[in-house]
Amino acid sequence: MRNLPDPERAKPCVLVIDDDEAVAWAIAGRLGKDFHVVGLSDPAQAVQRACAEKPGLILCDINMPGMQGDDVAFALSQDPRTADVPLIYLTALVGPEDDPELEGVFGDYATISKSATTEQLREAVAAALGLSSNEED
Rank of each mutant, 00 (worst) to 15 (best):
N3M: 12
L4Y: 11
D6N: 15
P7C: 00
P7I: 00
E8R: 15
R9P: 00
K11M: 02
P12R: 06
P12A: 02
P12Q: 03
L15M: 07
V16H: 04
V16S: 04
I17D: 03
I17V: 15
I17Y: 05
D19T: 04
D19K: 02
E21V: 12
V23Q: 09
W25I: 11
A26I: 12
A26M: 14
G29K: 09
G29W: 05
L31A: 04
L31I: 08
G32E: 03
K33I: 06
K33G: 12
K33L: 10
K33H: 12
D34P: 00
F35R: 05
H36C: 11
V37P: 07
V37A: 04
G39T: 03
G39W: 01
G39Q: 02
G39S: 02
L40H: 01
S41D: 13
D42H: 11
P43A: 04
A44L: 10
A44T: 15
Q45N: 12
A46S: 15
A46K: 06
A46I: 03
V47M: 02
V47N: 02
Q48S: 10
C51M: 14
C51E: 14
C51H: 06
P55I: 06
G56V: 07
G56A: 10
L57E: 02
L57R: 06
I58T: 12
L59I: 09
C60M: 10
C60K: 10
D61P: 03
I62L: 15
N63C: 09
N63S: 13
P65K: 12
G66C: 07
M67V: 11
Q68Y: 08
Q68I: 09
G69F: 06
D70T: 14
D70M: 11
D70Y: 14
D71N: 10
D71Y: 05
V72L: 04
A73E: 10
F74N: 12
F74V: 15
A75K: 14
L76A: 08
Q78W: 02
D79L: 11
P80I: 00
P80D: 02
R81P: 06
T82F: 07
A83E: 13
V85N: 00
V85Y: 02
P86Q: 07
I88L: 15
Y89Q: 07
A92H: 08
V94I: 15
P96H: 08
E97P: 01
D99E: 14
P100G: 00
E103A: 15
E103N: 11
E103L: 11
V105Y: 11
F106R: 12
G107W: 02
D108W: 06
D108P: 09
Y109T: 02
Y109K: 13
A110D: 14
T111W: 03
T111F: 01
I112F: 01
S113Y: 08
S113I: 11
K114F: 01
A116M: 06
A116H: 05
T117M: 00
T118E: 11
Q120T: 13
L121A: 05
L121D: 01
R122S: 03
R122M: 04
E123H: 10
A124R: 14
A124S: 14
A124Y: 04
V125Y: 11
V125P: 10
A127I: 06
A127T: 15
L129W: 09
S132K: 15
S132Y: 09
S132C: 12
S133G: 11
N134F: 09
E135M: 08
